[in-house]
Each structure stands twice: as C-alpha cells, then as structure tokens.
Write a protein that binds this DNA or RNA. Structure first.
Lengths: 309, 309
DNA sequence: CCATGATTATTGACTCAGTCAACATGCTGG
DNA sequence: CCAGCATGTTGACTGAGTCAATAATCATGG
C-alpha cells in the first residue's frame, strides 16, 4: 500500500530530479560565462545587498566560509572587488564591487535573463503559464515564514463559480453527493446575485496564502427580521485553523448589524465538523427531518440563532 | 516599464534562488551520507534502469563522460558495482550493482525519503498542498515533451462551478463585464443541470495538460427541433490551438445525432474570436440588436446553423 | 570490403566546490 | 577582565566539472 505521504515524497523527489536536470544550471552560467554557478551567486549577493560582508553572504547562500573567502580573493585578484576594514567593527571587511565588478555583474544579468527568457519562450503558452504559476507558488511557500493566516474579503469576479466548484467537488468526493448538489449550489449562488441587496445580503471569501479556502453567505429569509446563513465551507487543508469560526463570526456580526433578529441555517447531520462550529457560535437545532437528497439518505437539520439576546 | 516577460523571467530566477537554497540539497545527501549528490544521482540511475550502461547515465543526467567514468570506478573500488562486457556490443560495459551496492542504495533511499518526509511534515498543510501541486505541475511541464493536446470529456464534479468561475473571471478582466454576467452564467449552468435530459442536452469540457481550457453546452431550445449552443469559451493560454473548433464540432455533431434541425446561439459582437469560429462552422447571423448588458453597451447577435443541409 | 565517422569508455590536466580543522583577531556580556 | 562567540584566513583533501587526447568498437555508404 502506498500512503498519500509516500506519494508526496515520491513526487517531490521526481520534481527534484526534473529540476536538477532541466532548470538547475540556468540561473548563473549561460554558455561561456566567466563565472561558475557558485561565483555567480556570490556576485549576485555582492551586487544586491547593501554594505555586503562576507559573513552575511555565507549565511544567505548557506556556503562554507572558506569557500566564500577564496571566491572573494579571486574576485579581488581579478579586480572585481575591493575591501576595506569596517570603521565600526575591526573584524568586518566591507566589500564593494569595483566598476569592472559592476560591469561584469551587469553583463551576467543580461545574459542569464536572456537564457531564461529563451527557455520560457520555447514553451507552449499553456505550459509557460503553468510553470510560472508553480514557480511563484513554491516561492511563496518558502518566503512566507509565518504560518499562513486566513483573512476575509468580499466577492470578486470568479468567486461565485469557484464556491460552486469547490463545494461541488468536495462534497462529491467526501460524501458522494451527486451533481444535483452542485447544481443546487449554482442556483443558490445565482439567485443570491440576482436578488442582491447590500442592505440585506452579504458574502465573504476566506483567503489564505493566495488561495480561496472557505466561504459563507448571508441571505435575507422569507420571514421579516430573519436571515439565512448559507454555503459555509472550509477547504480540507485549511481546517483546524479557525477559518470556519472566523466566517461564522463575520456572518453573525453582520446579521446583527443589519438589524436581523434571527439567523437560520440548514444543514445535514453528516457534516459533523460544521455542526460543532454552529454549536459553538450559539446556534440550536430547531427542526430535524430525515430526507433523501443528492443520492443519499440524510437527516436535514435547521439551526437557529437568536440575535436579540 | 516592466513587461510581463521581464516579470516572468524575474519570478523564475527568484524561484531558482529559493530552490537552490531551500530544496537543492535534499534529494541525495541526508546528513552523514557516504555519497555526494552527484554520486547519489548516478547510484539512482544504476539501481533503477534496466541494463545500465555508462553512456545512458551520461545522457540521462547530463553529466560529463569523464566524471561518470570516474564515479563508477570509485564505486567499483568500493565494491558496489561490477561490470562485464556486453555480448552484443563490445564497447558497452554492462554495469550492475553488487549486493552491497543494492544495500547501500536501499539505505540511501530510506534516508532521503525520511529527510524529504521531514521537510513535508514541517510545513503547514495548506503550504504542503501548494508545494506539492506546484512540484507536480512543474514535473508535468517538462515530462510531456509533445505539445499539450486538448481533449474533450463530459462533466465531472466541480466543472459546473469552474465554468462559471473562469468565464466570470475572464470576461470581467478582458471586457469589463460586471458580476451580473457571472450570475447569469451560474443560472444557465444551474438550469442546465436541473432540466438535464441525456436525450436532449449535453456538455463538454476541453482539457489540456490536466487543466480545464474550455467548455461548450448543448441545450434544447424552446421551439421543437431546435437546440442552443451555449457557454462556449477557451482559456487565453489555449487559444490558437483549435480548442474552440473542436468544441463546436463536437456540439454540432451531437446536435445532428440527437435529431435537431437547427442550432442557435447568442453572442455579442465584441467577441470577435468566437464569431470567426461560428462563421467557419457554417453559422449565420439571423438577428442583431443593440443592447445594454453587464454594464456595457453591446450588440447582441443570434447565429443559426441549419442542420438539415 | 574497407574507409570514414560516430559512439563509447578511459585517462591526464586543470580549476573550482565543498568539507574539515586549525588559527588569528576582534567584539560582547557577565 | 576573560570566556565565549563571531569573523575571516589558510592548509589539506576529495569530488565536481571541463577540456583535450586516445583507443576500441560499431554503423554506413560507396
């Protein structure tokens, strides 16, 4: 048996191999460059950091101090770098590129840019877009060191469909609900927009790490003074980080602010995680009926929250 | 001014730097490994290919023949590899791992898997999913050497919403159409599903390189014997590779097969690319009326194709 | 059948990468 | 003031990577 974890490891290793073979040598040595990859990395650091010091470069690139020392020695011999003792710290050597050094860096930049440009241009537009999206994603994964925080925002183009797609996809996979479920969501979403009244309705998208990870909709109910909470969902990856609670709180607060006296919601007992969230937010079950829906035997529930308390 | 191309190059370079720093050393040398990265790569090839020959490894890894020769010599001295002359080809050396070689490879595998597993486990689930999706995408970009061909398939969970999302997003960006356009699509899509009759309706998704790149829907019309072509779209990346034509042909063929005598469609003059496709497929304009829609002044068109010809 | 060219493998020579240990020097916090 | 730490250098060594030369073998076309 192969677990998901094993598969992940295998995929990442496959990626590593592809990368080493196809991309690895790109960022540095175009053909005939006077610099090796490692030298180019050091030169890049020298050119881009302010007041470069050897130790800083060592840390930034994860290289051995000995190697950086020798590389800089070579650069000095080639007339690319000068160093002077730091006035503040006698042990620091302030490094700076000479004019020749800057010129060398500039042609290096031009050439590597050109060679990467060539790679990009050689790809089919479809693949190019995919490669770049993936590269940006990986970058983001390692750049953002803080754990990804979710934030709420309003609706943007594409969101309505995305909510439909994700919920349709997830409930089909997790609970085997049929396509009529997705169609139901599409209809709710479409009607939400047709009847939209900013004084009565609202919707939130939860976003984390640049991706939609959840949604919630606030829609006016049939009875005056009541509203409905609809289409709450949280992506599996993002569960357990308080996204659901955040969404419900925003929805309840807005319902209060708009003057509603009661907030209702419909769900089925199968969705245990959601039920816990409703409970914690103070909702109570007011109705429960067995029902056949989406190709499954389910138990419908209506929950209600008194907003006047 | 920074063009998209420049930005792409910069992003790919940034990715390259991130990679070299954060992932580069992973696939090979766990801490205290008796193999260098390059040696590990060669060992991997020795262990996984059938009837390994030095020249094959040279090509697969893009290494210098001299280096591979010396690496294998070291392996032989360490008792990891034996070689014998190929009976078929006197210049080929058939390499094979000894028992010790296989054992060394196996512990290497275990350890690198563990160290990659550690990296994966250290990431937030959200980021892990993102990293892996991106790694798989990059792999796919370089694995599929043939230009990505589009293929058609039926509806799957999530497709209805995805069609809505992509069309809403694209027409908002390209033509400034408002959110009511997205809501309209959501409604069409929802109604399509509610009224779905396999003997009268159909839908296709175009997929290329594992991604949805277009859609088309066939829906029965009000008048008997007539059908409507709806929701045709092609992703910008995938334009110019015949996806639109493929979709229309599938739709027209199915309409014929279901016995319809006429196929209508509604569009607006702004969508010039689509208009050309309709024209080439034999559609003709039967009605044209200026109209205000989606926050724009548009000219509605109804096109029609006689299927009895 | 043979000359020619391509492929395969090896070796020498060289520079740089990368690791480890030793060492000198300056700074910093009790 | 002194121990400990960070910074930078050097020596010694192995492997990576490049280039050129060489030798053996195979494939091919006249």
């Amino acid at each position: 048996m192969t677990t998901q974890h094993d598969q992940d490891v295998a995929d990442l290793r496959a990626f590593n191999r592809t990368y080493t073979r196809r991309l690895g040598l790109l960022d540095a040595s175009y053909d005939g460059s006077p610099f090796t990859l490692s030298e180019a990395r050091v030169l890049y650091e020298l050119a881009t950091r302010t007041d470069p010091v050897a130790a800083g470069i060592v840390r930034a690139l994860g290289l051995d101090p000995a190697q950086v020392s020798r590389t800089i020695k070579r650069f000095t011999e080639r007339g690319l770098v000068t160093s002077r003792e730091s006035p503040a710290h006698g042990r620091h050597l302030l490094l700076s590129l000479t004019d020749e050094g800057r010129a060398a860096f500039s042609t290096l930049e031009t050439n590597t840019k050109a060679s990467i440009g060539q790679l990009i241009d050689g790809l089919h537009p479809l693949r190019r877009a995919r490669l770049l999206a993936a590269a940006r994603a990986i970058n983001a994964v390692f750049e953002g060191d803080a754990p990804p925080a979710a934030r709420l925002r309003g609706l943007e183009p594409g969101d309505l469909g995305m909510v439909t797609a994700r919920q349709g996809f997830l409930y089909a996979g997790e609970y085997g609900w049929g396509r009529d479920h997705e169609a139901l969501i599409a209809e709710i979403v479409a009607r939400f927009h047709q009847d939209f009244d900013p004084a009565k309705d609202d919707a939130w998208i939860a976003e984390a790490d640049g991706r939609m990870v959840g949604s919630i909709f606030l829609v006016r109910g049939e009875a005056p003074g009541t509203a409905k909470l609809r289409l709450l969902y949280v992506e599996p990856d993002a569960r357990g980080m308080g996204v659901g609670q955040m969404l419900i709180e925003a929805c309840v607060a807005r319902a209060r602010a708009l003057g509603y006296r009661r907030l209702d919601l419909w769900t089925v007992t199968t969705l245990t995680a959601a039920r816990k969230l409703y409970q914690r937010a103070g909702f109570q079950v007011v109705e429960e009926t067995p029902c056949r829906r989406f190709g499954q035997d389910l138990v419908d529930q209506i929950w209600s929250l008194d907003l006047t308390a």
